[in-house]
Design a protein around this nucleic acid. Structure first.
Lengths: 252, 252
DNA sequence: TTTCTTTGTGCACATTCTTGCATGATATGC
DNA sequence: GCATATCATGCAAGAATGTGCACAAAGAAA
């Protein structure tokens, strides 16, 4: 990876999120934090960002507008969840990743230097993974549903049926200890079920607003969840319910 | 391989990807890295690129952001081609669109108010179409090839086989009146052939640098081209050859 | 044809750039 | 104040680069 590319990525990220973290960039790029710090130093010298402890933020003129516009609380929280979620990955694994903004954040958080095989029906996830050199990306085709950002339908199901994965990153709509994982859409639920069936373990990263809610279509039982990634502020009682059913809880 | 050919390839690659790697070019051209560096030095002196450690990137004014979006100075020309190309569309049609920066430009040029069904194996095209409300988008899944930006392989072929289209927007690598349409990659060519087989007509939008060139793998004969969209400056003699074989010429 | 010149190419060597690690300094959170 | 995380600096190894030189191919001149 060219130095210039890292700089460009940092500029883009700053424009989009308003800030970057040194450690996160390092794992994303697959270089040491020293190198990232050198990059940040250079960019700071060129006035393209302002260094802060732990990373950097967009330089003054842009800071106000960009951060307030895009760096909403939810984005922030999802990135934190994403960083914790990628912690369960091991090199060489095969993954299913379905749609949703949280899963897209996870895809963006996957470091550059880990070798994975990923099958996804989400355009957003695929785009995020498209330039990771060590990720073998399999696009699960089908009818694209605009509201979901994913492909569903018979073709998608057929493609999923041909694959097997170690982990399935399930973008849940509702998550309840008794009712399990649920989705709003029938076709969407069907694809998720197929992915769950063909995976050894399910990983769910859920913001607080998903906890203890349910949608019409059942995707999986609560005891099928192997890893549950939640915010620091998630209600302990709810987490205990999931833990009792075998989920490993990861606090972001 | 002529020096000038290498220079042209480097310019093209830079326009398409925004960067080139010295080592990669050397193995691609079958010459030593020294020679590539000499090429890069010359092009840099002519202001056509900016050298960086490890290769070169598109020169300053377009020091762009994401891989897919930018096409350097050729972007203007491609947009013009794209606007002309969408002129052949009629409401209600079904299309195949494969990969390439020109096809991505075409996808972005499709107006919001036209109803279409589009099947594509290109992530870039799919992303461009994802938010067009009247476009029914079918993603053709498969193994994603980073260099091409498209999905290829058996799954892709199977998905194509189930569909039929009115028009196929073929992203050509080489285009020659006698040798027909050709591609650089075997798997890529296979998918293109399948799409051509299942379409009533082929549409090609080609910048001048594609005309009268050929790549190893044959995709379709020249007389299979129904619409050929070219720049205003395209050599008339070449166009006449295609016209004789039944192509309708559209000048952007 | 032979010879000379020009051009393009590859190789060897010295130089420069980049990167990761070690060390000590500084900032942050409790 | 202390433990921890983050940072700057110096250094060494490896990668990329520039330069000089030799060699081969193509064309011009004899």
């Amino acid at each position: 990876m060219l130095t210039e590319e890292r700089h460009q990525f940092i500029r883009d990220r700053l424009a989009a999120e308003g800030k970057v973290l040194a450690g996160e960039l390092a794992s994303r790029f697959g270089v040491s934090e020293d190198t990232v710090r050198r990059d940040l130093r250079e960019l700071a010298k060129a006035g393209q960002l302002r260094r802060v402890y732990g990373g950097a933020v967009a330089s003054a003129p842009f800071a106000a507008s960009t951060i307030s516009q895009r760096g909403s609380h939810a984005v922030e929280e999802k990135m934190r969840l994403a960083r914790a979620a990628v912690g369960v990955l091991a090199a060489g694994q095969t993954l299913f990743i379905d749609g949703g903004t949280t899963n897209e954040a996870i895809a963006r958080a996957i470091p550059r230097d880990i070798e994975l095989t990923v099958a996804t029906n989400s355009l957003g996830v695929a785009s995020a993974l498209a330039d990771l050199p060590l990720v073998e990306l399999i696009m699960l085709g089908g009818r694209y549903i605009r509201d979901l950002g994913t492909c569903v339908g018979g073709d998608t199901l057929a493609a999923v049926a041909q694959l097997g994965a170690d982990l399935f990153f399930l973008g849940s709509c509702g998550l309840d200890a008794s009712r399990g994982v649920t989705a709003f859409d029938s076709a969407e639920a069907e694809v998720k079920r197929a992915m769950a069936r063909n995976s050894a373990g399910i990983v769910i990263a859920a913001t607080n607003d998903k906890l203890a809610t349910a949608a019409p279509y059942r995707v999986a039982a609560a005891d099928a969840i192997r890893h549950l990634v939640v915010e620091r502020t998630a209600p302990a009682a709810i987490l205990a319910d999931f833990e009792r059913q075998g989920a490993e809880i990861h606090v972001a």
